[in-house]
């Protein structure tokens, strides 16, 4: 028998999926993922997602943008290309606020988007779950729970029986 990625159970409502995910977690399964057409609250926690570093990444992006924006202006206006205009101070910080602010936002926004994509591992041209034809409904109106074969507790027959107890519409094997 060929190696498989996992078992995919299909549900009709978010509530059923949520219940099944919690049951799987209570039964000791850890390697699993759920797929839904729109965000379902509490689902990420139910499959064991704790927290993301994304806010920290965005904060760092913002700080980098802020500091580099200010230093850019300071260095160009004071060090590299000083212009004496009527004896006014070269380090005219109030005039530097606007560009500093804009670069803070720009870097933070780029960090938010690129960070989100990187943490999610996107772009990802291939993923085994797409091998299940029914999975096309995961962006429409079906809710999927995948128990992955890498889980130490995973057993092809045992896990299938376990999933069927949650009364999914159907359970399919996800091939590589």
């Amino acid at each position: 028998m060929a190696r498989i990625y996992g078992l995919l159970a299909e549900f009709e409502t978010p509530a059923e999926l949520l219940a099944a995910a919690q049951r799987a977690r209570d039964a000791g399964y850890r390697h699993m993922d759920a797929y839904t057409p729109f965000p379902v609250e509490g689902l990420a926690e139910a499959i064991g997602f704790r927290r993301t570093w994304l806010p920290v990444i965005v904060l760092v992006g913002g700080i980098v943008g802020c500091v580099s924006g200010y230093l850019l202006q300071y260095w160009t206006s004071v060090v590299d290309y000083p212009l004496n205009i009527g004896g006014r101070p070269l380090h005219s910080w109030p005039a530097f606020v606007v560009v500093t602010f804009e670069l803070t936002i720009l870097f933070a926004a780029l960090a938010a988007v690129l960070g989100m994509l990187a943490l999610n591992g996107l772009p990802m041209p291939y993923h085994p779950v797409f091998n299940v034809p029914r999975f096309a409904f995961a962006t429409r109106d079906r809710f999927f729970l995948c128990l992955e074969a890498t889980d130490p507790q995973f057993d092809r027959e045992e896990t299938r029986r376990f999933l069927e107890r949650s009364q999914p519409r159907q359970v399919s094997e996800v091939e590589y």
Binding site: P39, L54, N120
Partner: peptide, 25 residues
């Protein structure tokens, strides 16, 4: 779509990113 598959983990980060972008915008 870059291989988006609607994973619950992805949604969680996605919503965080979207909210932060809104806060920045």
């Amino acid at each position: 779509a870059m291989g988006w598959r609607g994973s619950a983990r992805h949604w969680a980060r996605y919503q965080t990113a979207y909210l932060l972008l809104a806060g920045l915008a």
